[in-house]
Amino acid sequence: MAQHDSWSDPRGLAARFHLSKEGEPEIATDLIAMTLPEYFTPTVDTFLAFAEMAKPTPYRRESAWRKIWDLLNLKIPQPDPYPGEIISPYEGAMDYARSNDFSKYSIYQVSMIGAPVSYARAAYHAVHTFIVTGQDGTRRWVRFTWTPTVGVLPRDQNEKPQDHYLAHELRHRLSKGAVEFCLMMVIGEVGDDFADSSRAWGSQRQRVNMGTLTLDKIAEDQLADCEHISFNPMRLIDGIEASDDPLLRARLETYEASRKARDGAVCPFSRS
C-alpha cells in the first residue's frame, strides 16, 4: 500500500512511559497524540454523525470555471486532488462544519494541515483533558502537547507530491543524532469545558514544561516492537486520570477493536 506521505493529513505520535523499577511489576502510561490540536466533535454521537457525513466521496478536480466563480465569491477554490487521490472526505466534512459550529475550527485546520517535512518537525497534541495530581495532592485538569525542540516545519504544499519519505527521513536524521520533543502541559481554568475535546484552549493558559523526550533509535523489528504494541489512551498510572471526555472513554473500545484488526498483543498490564 502506497504511503502518500506528502498528502495533507494529521500524523500521530504515541508514547509509552515505562515507569516500573527493576523487579517491580510492569506499570506504564500511554500518551497518544496527533498533529491536529482538537477533535472534530465533542461526543460519540456527534462523532458518528460526522464520520457518516464525512465519508470519502469521489474527488475530482474543480473545473476552472468553478474556480473563477469561487474567486469572485471571495472563496478559496478547492485544492486539486493529488495524483492518485480519487476519493476525499472534503465535501462531506465541509457540509458538516456548516451546520455544526463546534467542528468548524478543526475542519478548517485539518483542511490546511499539510504534511511535515519530518516526523521530528511537527507538534503533537494529546487533545483530551487529563487530571494530574501533584505531589501535594493538588489535582489539575490539563492537556499535553509534544513540541519538537528544532521547531515545526511543514512541507511546501506546492512541491511535487512524494510518497514514502517520512520513515526514511527519520532514519536518516537519527543516524546523525537524537531528536527531542518537549512535553508541554497546559493547565485548564474555570470556564474551560474539560469534557469537550473539540475545543482547544486559548493561548493565554499557563504552560508548564514537563520534560524532554529523546528519540535516539528506531526499533529494528517494526512488527514486534511497534505494530504489535497496543496503545491505549486510558492506560494511566496513579496520578493521572481520564477526564469525563466521552470520546476519551470511547477510544478505549476503539483501540481494542483496532488492536484485534492488527493482531496486536493484549495489553500485558491491562487493568481490566
Binding site: R139, W141, G188, E189, V190, G191, F194
Partner: peptide, 16 residues
C-alpha cells in the same frame, strides 16, 4: 491572583 472569591465567586470544583 487567578483565584475567585470563595463565597460568591464564579467557581468550579475543578479549579477553585
Amino acid at each position: 491572583t487567578g483565584l475567585n472569591d470563595p463565597l460568591i465567586g464564579a467557581n468550579t470544583p475543578e479549579t477553585s
